[in-house]
Design a protein around this nucleic acid. Sequence first.
DNA 1: TGGGTTGGGAACAATC
DNA 2: AGATTGTTCCCAACCC
Length: 193
Amino acid sequence: MVVIVLLSPGVENVWCYAESPFLWGNSFQETQSDLEVILEFLEEYYKQNTGENVDKVYWTANGELCQQRWTCYEPPCGQLPKSTFKSLMAAGRKVRLYHFLFEMLEDPSMAHCVSWVPAATGVFRFSSTNKDQVAALWGQRKGNKRPMTYQKMSRALRNYARSGEIFKVKKKLTYQFGPATLMLLQKCQRGNS
DNA sequence: TGGGTTGGGAACAATC
DNA sequence: AGATTGTTCCCAACCC
């Protein structure tokens, strides 16, 4: 997810715009993993310029905050206590399937289950014999009651085509990350390492 | 032909 | 209470 922070030192409000990279492209972009850093920076910057502490974060959200996707469209404007802002950030970091798959792909010990296809960027393929192992791990990660299978997981993968996060490649057991998703995942990974 | 794979509708659940 | 993100079930089509 992308967050745009517009600082207005000397002005009472600090504006924080959050939106989805899959909807808009933007000039100043940071990933969701950088949100806390941004918030800290914002606080410090605001403090230096106004001599006051930030106790609230203001942002646009079509009149109200869309809690899960950080999707905001146009001002103005909502306001939240900082604590709520932080807890929402933590909630947004909950693992999603495409992120989990990226983790698997970056883990050499999982190469027998799922691996990158070198021919094209962002393309990956499940092993015909071990694909259910990936699915089972995903089910475990989510704490599902019933065992996850490749068939059910692939149903979730097919839903990603609508949002452009992952596409099906016309090859057996092969999928491709959307360019924006791949960039985001790679950036997240660099941020964590 | 058959089994594995793909595609998608629909209802449902968990979470925020 | 509504949106998001799967999960589960099911059936049809495709393909090697």
